[in-house]
Amino acid sequence: MIFGGRKEEDETVVAMLASAIRRDISFGVLLPDQKLKIEALRQSYGGSNHSMRETLRVLAAEGLVEATSQRGFRVMSATQADLKDILLMRVETEKLGLSRALQRGDVAWEARVIAALHALRRAEAAVQASPDDVTALEWDEACRAVTEALLSACGSPRLIEVAGKFYNQSRRFRLALLREGRIDFIARAQRQERLQTAILARDESTALELLEDDIRADLGA
Rank of each mutant, 00 (worst) to 15 (best):
T197G: 08
Q192W: 10
A116Q: 00
L88C: 06
L175P: 02
D133R: 14
G155A: 08
A198Y: 02
P131M: 14
E110D: 13
E193A: 14
V134S: 08
E193D: 15
A176P: 01
E141D: 13
R122I: 11
A207M: 08
G164F: 05
G155T: 10
A116L: 01
A189E: 10
A145E: 06
R104M: 12
V146P: 03
M76C: 13
R100E: 09
L83H: 11
L137Y: 00
A142H: 06
A111N: 00
R194V: 01
A101Y: 04
W139Q: 11
P157Q: 06
K84N: 11
Q190G: 08
R202N: 01
D140R: 08
C154Q: 03
S77D: 15
L98I: 04
L178T: 02
T206Y: 01
L178S: 01
A115G: 06
D85L: 12
E124P: 03
V113A: 04
A207D: 07
V91T: 10
A145R: 07
R194D: 10
P131R: 14
F166N: 04
I160V: 15
L177N: 02
A119T: 06
L178I: 03
E92R: 12
E92D: 12
V127K: 02
A111P: 00
T93H: 00
S130M: 15
A116F: 09
A81P: 03
A198M: 05
R172S: 11
R122C: 07
E124C: 09
A145W: 02
H118Y: 05
L102C: 03
V162G: 06
N168T: 09
R158K: 13
S156T: 01
A153R: 03
G155S: 05
T93M: 07
T93L: 15
Q196P: 00
A136G: 04
Q169H: 05
A81S: 11
R112M: 05
K95R: 14
A125Y: 07
L200T: 10
R158I: 12
T147C: 13
D140C: 12
R74V: 04
Q169E: 03
A101H: 04
E138F: 10
V107T: 15
Q103P: 00
A207H: 04
W139M: 12
D133S: 15
E138V: 08
F166P: 06
D132W: 09
F185L: 11
D132I: 02
F173Q: 01
L120C: 07
T93N: 00
R144E: 15
S170P: 06
R144V: 03
E94N: 06
S205W: 05
T135N: 12
E94L: 00
A142E: 07
L96C: 10
R121H: 13
I183E: 07
R188F: 13
R104A: 14
Q190R: 11
R172L: 04
E124H: 04
G181E: 01
A111V: 04
D184C: 05
R179K: 15
G105S: 05
F166A: 02
R174P: 00
P157N: 08
G181P: 03
E92H: 09
